[in-house]
Structures are given as C-alpha cells and as structure tokens.
Design a protein around this nucleic acid. Sequence first.
RNA 1: GCGGGAGUGGCGGAACUGGCAGACGCACCAGACUUAGGAUCUGGCUCCGAAAGGAUUGGGGGUUCGAGUCCCCCCUCUCGCACCA
Length: 850
Amino acid sequence: MTEVTQRKPDSATEPDGYDPAIVEKKWQTRWEQRGTNHTDLAGGARPFYALMMFPYPSAEGLHVGNLFAFTGNDIYGRFQRLQGHTVFEPIGFDAFGIHSENYALKVGVHPAELIPRNIENFRRQLKSAGLMIDWRYELSTTDPSYYKWTQWIFLELFKRKLAYRGRAAVNWCPKDKTVLANEQVIAGACERCGTKVEQRFLEQWFFKITDYAERLLADLDWIDWSESTKTAQKNWIGRSDGAEVIFRVADLLEMAGAATVGLNVMATTAELNALATDIKVFTTRPDTIFGATYLVLAPEHTLVDALTSDEQREEVTAYRRSAAKQDIVTRKVNKEKTGVFTGAYAINPATGGPIPIWIADYVLMEYGTGAIMAVPGHDERDFEFAKVFGLPIVRVVAPRSAHAAHIDSQNRDEHSTLSEPYLETENAHLVHSRQFNGLSVEEGKHAIVAWLAKHSHAKSYVTYRLHDWCVSRQRYWGPPIPIIYCDRCGEVPVPEKDLPVALPNVEDFTPDDTGVSPLARVESWYRVPCPRCGAVGRRETDVSDTFLDSAWYFLRYPSAHVEKAPFDETMLEKWLPVNSYIGGNEHAVLHLLYSRFVTMVLHDAGHLSFEEPYTKFRAHGMIIREGAKMSKSRGNVVNPDEYIERWGADSFRTYLMFLGPYEVGGDFRDQSIAGVRRFLDRLWASAIEAKRTGVPDDTVLRKLHHTIKKVGGDVPRLQYNTAIAAMMEYMNVLRAKERTPHVDEVLPLVQLVSPFAPHVAEELWERLGKTGSVFDAGWPAFDASLAAEDLVTIAVQVNGKLRGTIQLAPDSSEEGAVAAALADPGIAKFLPGPPTQVVYKPGRILSVRV
RNA sequence: GCGGGAGUGGCGGAACUGGCAGACGCACCAGACUUAGGAUCUGGCUCCGAAAGGAUUGGGGGUUCGAGUCCCCCCUCUCGCACCA
C-alpha cells in the first residue's frame, strides 16, 4: 500500500510534461466557472437522462466500487453529449438508514452532524474524479424537503389501500433487546453478543407489492435490462403455477364406522361440528394427489388450535412454542425434519380416505396457503418426513418407457416400495390413480384439477415467492411514517399540508428494550391531536425503510427545486423515464424492484404517464484487488484519493475501465495503472509535438478511421476495455518509428479519449488551438472511404491446417486467390496436386483440400 | 439442491453472424540513450524443438473444408436464492 504514495511519474516534473494535478485542477475550476456541466433542463434539445445509483455517504468515503460505477456512467453520458444530446447526470445521497445510524452509535456522534460531514467529503471526491455532474440538482434523502415527499408517497399507497399493518416475524436479541436484520444473525446467535436469537412478532407496515407481482413479472419481457438482473427479478418474484386443493377435515363420527382407522372417538357432536372445516393447500403437483398420505400445516397456521385433539394438545403447544422461539435463520437452515401429529384427520378428496394432519416447521406460513398435502412418494422433503414418522409412502407416478424404467432400476417396479422419492416428470405416467392411470404428469395435472373442480375441491392457482414489502423500521434515522393513531378514528394519515412529519432531534437514539422505535420515548413528539376528530392521538413512531427513500429519487432530480410538488409535470414529460441507468447487481431485487413497484403505483394514481422507471438498465461488474475480494479486514481496499493523487483522475478512470469488461468487472492491479498513464503521456507528447504543416499520413488516417468506428461502436455497448485497447493501438501507429504526428491525426484521438480522460482532453483540445469545450465539439465523423483497404491479408488452410497468408484485393476472385496461394512457396509445398475442394470467403479465408 | 456467470500465455484480458487464437496492457528479457534509471525509445516474449515442424483455449466425444465459438457428457471456480410445496 505504501508504494501507492511513492513518487509520481516523471512526466509530471518535466518541463511541459503532463502533470495531471495541474491540468485537472484547472479544468475542474473552469468547468465550474463556465457551467460546462450544467444541463439546460427546460430548453435542452434531445434530452438524455444518464442515471447512476446514488451512494450512501459512508464515513470511509467513496469506495472504488462507487467510482467504477460512476465512471462507467459518466463515460456513457459524455459520449451521449458528444452525440448531440442534452445530458443530465445528477447525483444525490442516500443518507438515511441503519448503516448511518449504527455508525453514529459506534462513534457517538449524532447522524445529523455526521452525515453532512460525510457528504462534504463525498462531494470533494466526486469532483476530483471529474464526473460530469450538474451539482445544482444534488439531493439528500435526509433533507426535509425530500422526505416530505417520501412521506407523501407512503400516503399515496395508504390511500390506495396498498399500505397496511400486519404482524411479522422479526429476529429479536433478548440481551441487546433489539431487532436484528437477518444478516446480523450468525448461526442462530446475535452477531454482537452471541446470545441465541428469538423470533418475535411485531406490528409492522407493509406495502402490497404482491398485488403487482404479475405486472412486475410481465414487464420484464420488454424492458431493456441486463439479462442477469431480469433473471434475478424473475426468480425473486417466483411465480409458481399449481392448484389450490381443499381438504375437508374428517367428520370423526363417520370415521368411527370406518374400521380402517383405529381412532379413539370420544368427542361430542358439538365438538365435531366445530371441526367441520376446510384446509386449503397449495400444490404444483395436483397429479400426485392419490399419493397424498398426510397433510402438514405450518406451526403458526390459524386452524391448528381448532384441529388439535385434547390428547395431542400438550405436544402441539410445546412444538409451536419451540418453533416460535427459533430465530428465522436457523429454522430455515436446520433441515432435520421435526413435527407433531395434531390428532385430526382430513379426507383426501381424490381417494376419499382419511389422512392425518400434522404440523411441522418445514412448512412455512408465508408461502402458498401455509399448508401442504404431503406426497412422500414424489417429494424429497415429504419423503424424509414420512421416513422419520413412519407415515405411508405411496407411488403414484412411474417411469413410462422400458428405457426409462431401465435407467431407473432402483424404482423399476411400480408396486415396489420406493427407496427414494421419484421426482421424474418426463417420460412418466400416473399409477394407482384410478381413472387417471396412464396419463402423463402434465395431462394428469389438468385432468385431476378439472375433476376436483367439479366438486369445488380444487382450482388452478398461482402463487408467488415474493412477499409484501415490510417498510417499518424500529429505528431513529429515517423518515417518520406519517400516520396518527386515534382511539376513535383508527389509523389516520397526516394531512398533506402538515407534511413533512419532521424527524425530531433526539439526543439518545439507541434502540431500547421495548422493541419499538426510539421515537416512542419522545412523548412531546408523538402525542398529537387526531387530525380528523381532534381527540388525543399518537403518532406512528416507526420510520420507513431506506429503500423507500431510494425508490423514487430519480423522479425528484429534475424537480429538485420544486417546493409544491414531488415532481414537476413538464420535467417528467421531458426527462423521464430514465434513458440509461447503470448500477450494481446487488440491487437487482431490492432497490430495482421497489422502484419499479413505486413507479407503477404512482402511474396508477395518475401521477406518472409511464409505469417503468428505467428504459434501459445495465449492471456493471465487480472489481477485486490482486485476485482477492476487497475488504476492510484484509486491508486491501483501494482508496481512490491516493491513486488520483499519484496518477491523476484521468489515468485512474481510464484504468478502471481498462482492467476488464465493464459488465463483468476485473482485477485491480496497482502495477497496471502505469500502462494507462503511459498512454496518456504519449497522447500528451503527440499533441505537444504535433506538426501543423503538411498533410496527415494515409496509413495513419486509415487506422484512425478504423479506431473512430471501433470506439464509437464499443462505447454505447459499454465495451470500454476494448475501446481503450483500440485507442492504444492507434497510438502505436501514430508514434511508430519516431515519426512526428500531424495535428489532424491527433485531434480526433483527443475527442475519442475525452469521455474517458476528460481533463487532459480539454487541455489538449485547447493547446491544439480549439476554443470551447471538447464536449461541445461533437464526435469525429467516420469516413468509410478513408478506412478502406486496398489489400487484405487472408489466411490459407490446406487440409484444415493453416499454412500461410496471402495478400489479396478485397474483391479478388476464387481463381485469383488459389493462384496467389500457389505462388507462395511456403504454401505451395503443401500442395502436391490440384485441390479437390476449395472454400473461399473473400476477405476471410481460403481453405483447400488435396 | 435451484438459478445466473465464467474456465484462453507468468498475470489482467482480446477474438464480429464458426474463418490467421493470444489484440491491448502489465510483468519479464535484450539492446539504445545515459553519471544513473524505477524515465524514454527499439526489439523479443504460449509451450516443445537447433530447425523443418508439432502441440495448444478446464477434460472427453461429435458436427464442419474449418471449432475458443455450435451439439452431447463430465470437471472446476464464482455470485445469487435456498425446506417456496
């Protein structure tokens, strides 16, 4: 790490050498003075909104990952400007949240004091990186003029009944007396104190994002996003097509007659009627219903109490209690099957036979209906459970063809006991399923659902993995949720005229043992009259999730100065949706999904004319350092300040873009920056030496136009690494054999390089006699006639092996090509006779067989 | 387990619809200029071989005049999600 701060490259100290420190300072100042980066939001033609994910202003300062993302966006934005667009490249700060709050607690400074300091540092760093940001529209989510509208959005959802209160499980540390995020639970224990974490149920606010699941999924078909991001969202939404099947709880009196069940029937008729109820289960395999040998409910299922028999009550209660105590993480990780019989039976609507009802924690209340029909013959988990508790396992699907049966030798016989669940669905048919025997799995699904539906025992049903979005945070550092509770009126929204509900300045904001927000300790703040009836009311003391802050910030930027509304209609019309959004895939399912959802809701509420916020989104890659992940504990985090100081922002930016494909990322190696710096040194030298008399060289010009084409094609596709390589190639031609380059050979390169290295480009543009910013000078024109070659080199293969190359006119005939090959002794010696087969692709290859 | 991405020189990485594998850069080697070089410039740089030539894109098959690229099987790494019925 110390080597970074060693002395700077010599070019900086040579007379008239390239000194980035001077050049960059000069242009940053000049850009500010001239307003070069100011966007004419109202009047600019061909608006282009180039958005980057706004950072959380940490105390550590800008991370190189941020800079990687921002630089990529900046190059894209600058390129669009050079193409004649009015580009808007705003920045802001995502400054609310647990992150900031925890850090503030750690260092003992109030976040309201800390955050502005951090932001100041971020501004300095962002400016030193030479980003084309219009600082006039900077915003911070902690600003009351911003979070006023975050609260307004909450109320818009509330108005549309998309915000509701419900109980939800949270991780609770009994020692620290605080709610923990899932990431803070390590192996079932609190990461801070090691105490075993418990599950607690708290009243929380939710947004009904599940109502939008289908639309969020459907739009993925047309939005222009990175495939990886779309796939992640698709999986997260997790649409699952199946059936809801109704199992009637068995009437025990009737069953007493059925000798098959050895039940001790002691219940009265009244009790039995109370039991006459339905259990809905969700299954994706209705075809296997004849193999459903028991039901399982989640321990929290509301019917459990009513179902449990007196004999089983004690055991059931104990099991439910222990399940509730377990923290959410261990419950999901611990896959050993446990469960308890409730004492009740249900009727399998397909077989008509009774099957026992169990509870087990492998069934989750939050998915499907919280109840399943267990088919141990054809489901791994059910199989395991049935083995543990000795429940019957029935095969209802068997391999169809002899071939399949052969492969599946263990489970060949459809009458044999299954030694493992049979999961195959292709080349399989139903067995032991009465009139459905012989149907394929797919046919069986439809036929059985249709059959059960006739008696209202089943219907097709779609369920989603996506859960409603819990937006409550029992914390301090966030926008207070704008709701007032009134004994008479219930949940009353704060009237818009009273927004924002300001976050009070509280000295002690440590989360306390009540499990509610620190704001609940500030009675003077939360004790307010009900806006509706005037009676004594109480404010909601939870704050909202940071992801709500960031779900709409891009709508605010162009209207950052508007006071009366969250966004100005003409600005929306002109600038939104966002033309290009670049960011990390770590936000693929949270931020990017939430902001799509909020946009859809605002669209439905009539505030926006579009329902998808980002026309185009590209996920950038991750950078590692010297082959290892960067982390504070490893001490291998790149500090941008040090590198910018030693190499210059232009070199640093260009290197970041050169170290790998932008959408993949790459390995940051200290030594390699030197190569990029040398490239800029050589660019500098070429410009200083360039002669103005005479004419440019033809060969150089040809290479130049190839380069213009290559760079112009690569940049919009974010293929920055190859664009830079192409410019380096051109540089090698430009400076070959100590020739002195001509101004007209250098100027276009300055333009090509400008999105990557903006400061040095401006400086050289000026030194080469141009006035005004290079960013207002457009993009060099590509001239195909100047790029055309009169001779091309093509490869010659004999019997599939490369034997040499020949020079040909691009439109040479096959005969000409063969003749040229024969004329080359190196190739001819592999051609003893006349060719028996010739494949010739002009400009590409000549392939002959003998 | 499911889903995404990736395996190419000493290293980071190039290679458009199949068409000269290793562009560009780092490191390294040699030379020039130099009191000096960690500056600059010139040249070299996948492996085996003195050469002719041969081998080579994680491994094994296949299609093709021709495969890093397409098809089948397998291995490894990596990032998400994970008892989702």
